[in-house]
Amino acid sequence: MNQELPSYPSLASFDEISIWKKALHSRSFVIGAVLALVILIAGITSVFWTPYAIDVLDVSKRLKPMSSEFWFGTDQYGRDIFSMLMVGARTSIIVALIAVGIGMLIGVPLGLLAAAQKGFLEELVMRTNDLIFAFPSLLSAVLITSIFGPGTINAVIAIGIFNIPVFARVARGGALSLSGREFLLAARLSGKSSFLITLEHVIPNIANLLIVQATIQLSLAILSEAGLSYLGLGTQPPMASWGRMLYEAQTMVAFAPQLALYPGFAIIFSVLGFNLLGDGLRDLLDPKMRRRVA
């Protein structure tokens, strides 16, 4: 059961060149990276250019089919769907990146602190984690956005909060697995403070774990943003968001079912991309987890 796939190169050396070589051989990594890159480029391009403006409603152009003029057709308000998908990519990426960033910036230090200072502080951090986990994430995001008002920023905060315990847990687990290793003892013997040791030795050694987790959290954040926007609590018009597009398409599904397809595919495309990228990175960075991991 433990046989390797024949196409998989050996892990004899671990220098950077071989990592890149392996990366190009990893199907997950390549497909994931390409998908993520496409979404990223679409989002960045939308800042400077989209085929049509998305805040101009023109009913005379409503529900046009796919054509060379409107690549993916137009919606019931006459907006160009391709342009809206591009802006939606920007919304998704910005929300996901900031939300995951919040989770990392707060969660990782908390997790490291919990690992370094055993006792009361650790207990406090981990119990707070459990508490946040007890709130079904979308439910709480609905609560937060509705109390503080719907909108992109509140959606980012709501999603970000639920990334904090995830990163705290990963950072603590990673740091604990390093404890007692010789290079940490050596650093301590050479007189470094625990802050410096954490900064210079622990963080670089758990960076792999964090990067892999961040990729997976990105895809979850994109799904959450779509859900919130679908409920009308996330990104507000005239900004486009895939979730919002699905909501608007739903009312038209009997007459124009194609409207529901594009945003759905965009979500699947990007979530799949970041998931595969995460899987691929894990395969590359952590040889122990190779292949068998779900």
Partner: peptide, 22 residues
């Protein structure tokens, strides 16, 4: 399964409604 994970349940729901109800 990898694709299934990436699909939002409300999108599946819209498609199901289209196919089975409409």
């Amino acid at each position: 399964a990898q694709i299934g994970i990436a699909i939002p349940n409300f999108w599946i729901a819209i498609l199901l409604v289209y196919v089975f109800a409409i």
